[in-house]
């Protein structure tokens, strides 16, 4: 491999710009960075903040916007405490609260169309049953501003649907196959790390027609209030995210990238430019920043600038060269 043979000094003269564009299973992204579903709403709240910080395109700077999970009917989410901090991370038990696909189309998609027209929109789709996933996709097929789907079969915070599809290769495969028949748009399937062998699920959804795979969703965890001797979260289980899970995510991305031929959207605790490069080297084609946005709401644009600089300084002309370029 001589991919990184260009030295920094040569690069300063030669690499005036870096091509950041990537192709995630047919989804053309202007750069490899998106956001992790559920951490970013539909982007509206961050858009204003980024613009106020001098990023004039707002969330249009992203390679893609990934929306919060959208279900057929409104979901209330979970009762009780929904988040807590943990060592180098946090636990959440939101429970996919959302207003349902109709209101999503009327409000969120309409807003995205008006304010982030140039950026790809990945809609994260969730459901309690195979039918519900399909009905959401059928409805979204009517909307021109949707670029791709991410099937959420990996959320640990709902009791019916969610992770139950993502821990069973047969079910995951059936859901993917059924959704595949409904759309020509890029179909991404988001996997949970809470399985014995994530590559088995990845291979199953690849065979069923998925265009890309995204991972990892949160790691199942728990917190206990020792005063009351009760679980902090009503459902007891919650999803661990943040830098604490990065090594777990990186290993999962590496193994899945080795196991399948479809591109990988890597995520799990990405906070720094070095994290981005590690995920790319492990085999990710694109990246999502999630929990880091809670600490630094400008995390995504900062990482984008940093990644571009890193590429310039390291003689990388096309960011896609880095994907899987582990020595």
């Amino acid at each position: 491999m001589v991919k990184h043979a260009v030295t920094q000094n040569e690069c300063l003269g030669v690499c005036e710009s870096v091509n950041l564009a990537v192709n995630l299973g047919g989804l053309m992204m202007q750069n490899p960075l998106t956001v992790a579903s559920g951490t970013f709403g539909s982007g509206r709240e961050y858009h204003a903040l980024w613009r106020n910080a001098g990023y004039h395109d707002g969330i249009g700077a992203l390679g893609a916007i990934t929306t919060k999970g959208v279900s057929l009917k409104p979901w209330d989410g979970n009762a009780g405490i929904r988040i807590t901090q943990s060592a180098a991370g946090m636990l959440n038990s939101i429970g996919l609260q959302n207003k349902g696909v109709e209101e999503f189309c009327a409000i969120d998609l309409a807003w995205l169309k008006q304010n982030a027209a140039g950026t790809a929109v990945i809609v994260n789709v969730c459901g309690h049953s195979l039918d519900e996933y399909q009905l959401v996709i059928q409805r979204l097929e009517e909307e021109a501003s949707v670029s791709a789907y991410e099937l959420n079969i990996s959320c640990p915070n709902v009791s019916c649907g969610g992770m139950s599809f993502g821990t069973d290769a047969l079910l995951a495969s059936e859901l993917t196959a059924r959704c595949r028949t409904l759309t020509k748009r890029p179909l991404i399937v988001k996997l949970t790390p809470n399985v014995t062998d994530i590559t088995e699920i990845a291979r199953a959804i690849e065979s069923a027609g998925a265009d890309a795979v995204s991972l990892i969703n949160t790691v199942a965890g728990m917190s206990i209030d020792i005063k009351s001797r009760k679980a902090l979260f009503e459902r007891k289980v919650a999803g661990l995210s943040g830098p604490a899970i990065k090594p777990v995510a990186l290993w999962a991305v590496y193994r899945v990238a080795q196991a399948v031929n479809i591109p990988v959207l890597g995520m799990g605790g990405i906070c720094t430019v070095e994290d981005c490069v590690e995920f790319l080297l492990a085999g990710a084609c694109a990246l999502a920043v999630g929990t880091a946005s809670f600490n630094d709401p400008l995390s995504a644009p900062h990482l984008l600038e940093g990644l571009q600089q890193w590429c310039e300084q390291n003689g990388v002309r096309n960011v896609s060269e880095l994907t899987g370029a582990l020595n």
């Binding site: 951490t39 970013f40 903040l49 919060k68 929904r82 988040i83 946090m90 959440n92 939101i94 809670f294």
Partner: peptide
């Protein structure tokens, strides 16, 4: 309420 994003995106503070 406990909050994560603080700007209306994450729905932690319902």
């Amino acid at each position: 309420r406990r909050m994560a994003c603080g700007i209306g995106a994450c729905l932690s503070c319902s």
